[in-house]
Nucleic acid binder design. Structure first.
Length: 352
DNA sequence: AAGCTGTCCAACCGCCACCGC
DNA sequence: GGCGGTGGCGGTTGGACAGCT
């Protein structure tokens, strides 16, 4: 037996809202509020609409200070950062963008941002394939020089894929730092505070990795419950993308996070789904977020320029670069910090 | 001008979490 | 603890519109 419908579907109007319906709903809510019961609201004001439909209409369209369209580059960055960190948690993402609704952001992502990023991803992929080919040839030469009896020469069997494993060079250290800044800015917007902003903090925790790459992040959050929950979710997820490990402790009024860099990009990739991983790799390997925008403005610019990218289905993406080596990622809720699992190279590189 | 195709976005659907009883 | 009602959320749909042939 299925669950009872929330309203009598037979007597409920569907489809676009008329200006009269909008006016009725808006006037009522502005004077009386929702009364805490959306289901009963349409009956009260004589609307033949489902309560859920009223709620959606109010939240996504009639509510004051709603902005539609015209996403700025900064908003793009925030959306991308948060998508990489927490996935399609549109309501949380929307909470960081005043005046934006989750529906708007979701639509914007699905119709524009995703394609924009995919376009960049394709370019990177092509560049990678080219560089990987020359790397293979180099490896082949090297292996011929250093052939060990009984050792299989695997170089020639390598797939035309470059792994999401990047040594920490001075270049991508900069990229890490730049995206640390992105995540950091979001955390600050969430109400977080970094101990290196306040050197007097006694809980500062600085960890040095073998490459002397330092993440002196220690974040304090106020105790606003929703903010706290959201922050925990985002922060813990952000720690997945940002090769960090997180620990947190709670005092009476403040939650402290110590985010310690413990590994390389392997850790970063773990815990993300395929596209998030691709996206994050794209960003880290392609000039950070700036690399996503470059000089060709694919959004809002040449909308007529229907590229092969735009016409391809999103389903292609997940099959493009990486197999599903990431699974079971659960965003951190409350204080349970997820432990990253060991990177399974065989599942990444596919059958040898 | 007409038909076709692709894009955008408002709205719907179904699932799940929460809350009060 | 179980149950029903409700709110909230993310995924999906379908109609309107624009651009192309």
């Amino acid at each position: 037996m299925g669950r009872a419908p929330c309203c009598d579907k037979a007597n409920v109007k569907k489809g676009p809202w008329s200006p009269e319906e909008d006016a009725k709903l808006k006037a009522y809510i502005e004077t009386n509020g929702t009364g805490g019961n959306w289901i009963a609201l349409p009956q009260k004001i004589g609307l033949k609409r489902c309560g859920k439909s009223c709620r959606l209409r109010w939240l996504n369209y009639l509510r004051p200070n709603i902005r539609h369209g015209g996403f700025s580059e900064e908003e793009d960055n925030i959306i991308c950062s948060l998508y990489i960190s927490i996935g399609s948690r549109w309501s949380i993402i929307a909470a960081q963008l005043p005046g934006r609704t989750d529906n708007d952001i979701k639509n914007y992502w699905n119709t524009k941002l995703k394609k924009k990023l995919l376009g960049k991803q394709r370019k990177v992929q092509q560049a990678r394939s080219a560089s990987c080919l020359s790397f293979k040839q180099e490896m082949k030469r090297e292996s011929e020089n250093y052939r060990v009896p009984g050792m299989v020469n695997q170089a020639s069997d390598w797939p035309l894929l470059s792994p999401p494993v990047m040594p920490l060079t001075s270049t991508n250290q900069d990229l890490y730092l730049r995206d640390q800044d992105s995540i950091r800015n979001i955390l600050v917007k969430l109400g977080g505070r970094f101990s290196d902003d306040h050197p007097q903090s006694s809980t500062t925790s600085t960890t040095t990795n073998p490459m002397n790459f330092r993440y002196p992040f220690d974040v304090s959050f106020s105790q606003d419950h929703q903010l706290y929950e959201d922050s925990m979710t985002i922060l813990s997820s952000a720690s997945s993308i940002s090769p960090l490990n997180s620990t947190c402790s709670q005092t009476n009024s403040t939650t402290h996070f110590s985010i310690n860099q413990v590994g390389g990009p392997n850790d970063m990739i773990q815990g993300l789904d395929a596209f998030q991983a691709e996206l994050s790799e794209l960003i880290y390997s392609n000039n950070g977020f700036e690399g996503l925008y470059g000089t060709d403005n694919m959004v809002g610019g040449s909308s007529t320029g229907t590229s092969s990218v735009e016409s391809s289905s999103w389903g292609d993406i997940n099959s493009l670069a990486y197999p599903q080596f990431v699974s079971g990622f659960e965003p951190c809720q409350h204080q349970s910090i997820p432990q990253v699992s060991n990177f399974d190279e065989s599942s990444y590189f596919g059958p040898q």
